[in-house]
Simulated scan of single mutants.
Amino acid sequence: MGAGKTTAIRAISEIAPITTEAANSDHTECNKEETTVAMDYGEITLATGEKLRLYGTPGQARFQFMWPILATGALGVVILIDNSRPDPLADLELYLDAFRALADGGAAVVGVGRMDRCPQPSLEAYAERLAALDVVVPIVPADVRRRNEVLTMLEILLQQLEATWAYDEAIGDGLSGHGLMGAHP
């Protein structure tokens, strides 16, 4: 909660984002006035002309039941972490656990926000935590208010998808470029 998912979608969406903001009733979790309670939605057009649909999940653990619903059919995931929270590495584990299939399929990026105000834990600490969990995904600092930084995370994600699809085709596993939920051998 408060990592910037809604802000990121607003920063890059070519349509007016659809949001489900409601009054925040949990100021101990995050001291902000509104929070996402169902999902956010936006779109961008890729260079190929295809539309990329963007979904932002609610961040509070009490909405955890929504995460697999919104991840169904997803090509990939950007996990945004607020580095100013009390234990952002624990937050990473919580969200990674929820989206592990996408991460294991090579379709995930971790964006760490507010590093300008809270430089610790470092990106290296995130990499070490991911390595301990046997997960290899890119980790980048991210100011989600900046369109170019959000687009960079999506470009990294799309590069992962292209590499995965090329690998799938090379080993002839029969995937038609869309099956990313399973782990590769």
Rank of each mutant, 00 (worst) to 15 (best):
G4R: 03
G4K: 03
G4L: 05
K5D: 03
A8Y: 03
A8M: 09
S13H: 04
T19G: 04
E21Y: 09
A23C: 01
A23M: 03
D26Q: 05
T28A: 15
T28V: 12
C30M: 09
K32P: 00
K32G: 06
E33V: 00
E34S: 10
T35A: 13
V37D: 05
A38Q: 04
Y41K: 09
G42F: 04
A47G: 11
T48H: 08
G49E: 07
K51P: 08
L52H: 13
G56M: 09
A61R: 04
F63W: 05
F63Q: 06
Q64R: 06
M66T: 07
W67I: 13
P68T: 11
I69Q: 13
A71S: 11
G73I: 03
A74T: 00
G76R: 00
V77Y: 00
I79H: 01
D82W: 00
P86T: 09
D87P: 00
A90Q: 10
D91R: 07
L94D: 11
A98G: 13
R100H: 05
G105R: 01
A108M: 03
V109T: 09
V109G: 15
V112L: 15
V112S: 15
G113V: 06
G113D: 05
R114P: 01
M115G: 14
D116M: 11
R117Y: 04
R117T: 02
P119K: 13
P119M: 12
E124Q: 11
Y126L: 11
A127S: 06
A132P: 00
V135I: 13
V137I: 13
V137Q: 11
P138H: 02
I139A: 13
V144C: 13
R145D: 08
N148L: 09
L151A: 14
L151Q: 10
L151P: 05
T152G: 13
E155C: 11
Q160D: 01
E162V: 06
W165N: 07
W165F: 02
A166S: 10
Y167C: 07
D168F: 14
D168A: 13
E169G: 12
A170K: 11
D173Q: 14
L175F: 13
S176N: 14
H178S: 15
H178T: 08
H178A: 15
G179E: 05
M181D: 10
A183K: 08
P185E: 06
